[in-house]
């Protein structure tokens, strides 16, 4: 009986929007795990959206886009779907670069070519959403297409700082 009760309360806590601060001390562990889950869920890595806007701005480089991706670790993370954002971004996205980048990180469901009329298709939007926002490069590097200079990505953070002789 006791087992059932605690399991049920744990379930309630996991589903509630905020940890139940009134819970007694025996629930601390569950709360802790809940917070951890929430925290983990918020962790983001570098998305292909970011890749699609990054460019190597080393002095003298005329076309620093798109950066090549060297993959060490990729994670998938579901994020909220926002059709407004997808439609807004579609005009700005370099589609070929997105297709190529998503292939590099192991997703090849995007059509070769895309046009704005496809934004009416829910299936297309879902794929676009997944490629743009849910594939995260956690470890690896971005490589300048012209010079081969590597910008490392650690824990999902690209370091795009240039050296003195590159500015």
């Amino acid at each position: 009986m006791t087992d059932w009760r605690s399991a049920s309360r744990a379930q309630i806590q996991l589903d509630s929007p905020e940890p139940d601060h009134r819970a007694d001390h025996s629930k601390n562990k569950v709360q802790f795990e809940w917070l951890k889950l929430k925290y983990e869920d918020k962790l983001r890595r570098m998305r292909l959206l970011t890749h699609n806007m990054l460019s190597s701005n080393i002095k003298g480089v005329t076309n620093g886009f798109p950066l090549l991706i060297e993959v060490e670790k990729v994670v998938e993370k579901a994020v909220d779907f926002n059709a407004d954002f997808l439609r807004n971004m579609f005009a700005m996205i370099e589609w070929n670069a997105l297709v190529e980048a998503s292939r590099t990180v192991g997703y090849s469901e995007l059509p070769e070519n895309a046009e704005s009329s496809m934004l009416d298709s829910d299936e297309f939007l879902q794929k676009f959403h997944h490629a743009l926002l849910e594939l995260h490069l956690e470890e690896g590097a971005l490589v300048c297409p012209e010079t081969g200079r590597k910008f490392t990505v650690n824990k999902g953070i690209p370091n795009m700082l240039l050296h003195e002789d590159e500015v």
């Binding site: 925290y39 962790l43 990054l54 460019s55 953070i157 690209p158 370091n159 795009m160 240039l162």
Partner: peptide
């Protein structure tokens, strides 16, 4: 990043973004 934001290390005088 620990707070869950998408961020990168870059110089505001030389942003690593493409134009527009």
């Amino acid at each position: 990043s620990d707070k869950g934001n998408e961020v990168l290390v870059a110089d505001a005088v030389n942003l690593p973004y493409r134009t527009g």
